[in-house]
Amino acid sequence: MAGPSCMNHTLNGILYQDMTEFQRLMIYKRIYHPQWDACEDDIPTSYNEAKDMMEDLGQVLATMFNSSKMPRNRIFGIIDYMVGAEEDRKEPSWLLDNITTMLLFSSGSMIKHYLIYLNNKNSLLTVSDIISSMVIVCDRMDNDLAPKGKPGVNSILDWVFSEFPSHKKNKLYSDFWQEIIDRCKEEDVSGWFCFLLCLLCAIGGMITQLGSYLSEEAFFDDPALQDTGAEE
């Protein structure tokens, strides 16, 4: 019932024409079977598309996670099975950004514990895969990295880079930035010049946010910088 919505069907008839978009969406979700293979082939291009496709599934997983009746590792095993990230595979069957989108519609607490689970397990998915994908998905949905008044992807980055074991941080930083660079290249593969334009124009807003976020973290964590009285 909570699976990805099958939006390829057309509802015909006068009754359906008189329905609101919300009513049509509920009919899609409740009458037709979930379109699981959509997660292997298609990536939502906007927040509304992602919400229609993944919100129910993310909320169900969050509810299961918050329940005391099911062990958390079992829930994470269900996620691995659902997205095709079992150890006997070469790569997950779901596209990485769809896995991340589903997680972003769950809860911050579940995401953190799932990242711990991935860190402790020889999984096809890695922590750097997920957190770099979160930045890309956040940009695609036109969401702020650090929205005012509520936790955003920045809270997950804060937690990962501060709470993960220190001996793993160098590799985590390196892998994270390499993933960001690789993903930027994928957005525009017509050479380094176009790649630089892509950074400055197409995804410049998110890169600026990411740089601003990291700069602020470095500034507030370093007393020497705070004492200079510099404004930038």
Rank of each mutant, 00 (worst) to 15 (best):
Y28F: 13
E217W: 15
N120P: 01
I116L: 06
T126A: 05
D188C: 11
Q23G: 07
Y32N: 07
M54Y: 11
H167M: 13
G58P: 06
A202K: 15
R30L: 14
M1A: 09
D139S: 07
M102Q: 02
A230M: 10
D42N: 13
S5C: 09
S107G: 06
I43E: 07
G84E: 09
E232F: 12
Y28G: 07
I156W: 00
N8H: 06
F220G: 13
G13C: 11
V83N: 04
M53R: 15
A202M: 04
S68E: 08
A146L: 04
I180F: 07
D56E: 01
G149Y: 03
S162G: 11
V83K: 02
M26I: 01
S67V: 01
S174F: 02
N143F: 14
N119S: 14
N143Q: 14
D222L: 08
D18P: 04
N122I: 09
E216T: 08
Q17L: 08
C184S: 15
E217Y: 15
I207V: 12
I116T: 08
F161T: 02
W192P: 11
F164Q: 01
Y28N: 13
A218C: 01
S68Y: 14
T100L: 00
S68C: 06
F105N: 10
D52L: 11
L95G: 00
L199H: 01
N66F: 05
A62F: 05
P223H: 10
W36Q: 10
G3M: 04
I207H: 12
G149V: 05
E40G: 10
F105T: 04
N73Y: 07
I78V: 13
W192V: 12
W177T: 08
S132C: 08
E40V: 06
S174Q: 09
D18N: 15
A38W: 09
Y173W: 14
L95R: 07
D222N: 15
W177V: 13
M53V: 01
Y213S: 05
I203A: 04
A50K: 00
C39E: 05
S190K: 12
S133Y: 02
S128F: 05
P151H: 08
D41Y: 14
P4F: 01
Y117A: 01
D37I: 10
F219Q: 11
L15D: 10
I99Q: 04
H33T: 09
T63A: 15
M110T: 03
D139K: 03
Q178R: 14
M64Y: 06
V189E: 13
D139H: 02
K29C: 09
E217N: 12
L96G: 00
S128W: 00
I75E: 09
G205M: 00
A2P: 03
M134Q: 12
G152Y: 04
E231Y: 00
C138P: 01
D18M: 15
N48K: 13
S106N: 03
S128Q: 03
A218F: 05
L115N: 03
E216R: 09
F76N: 05
L96D: 02
D144G: 00
T20K: 10
D42C: 12
V160N: 08
F22N: 10
E179S: 10
I156M: 02
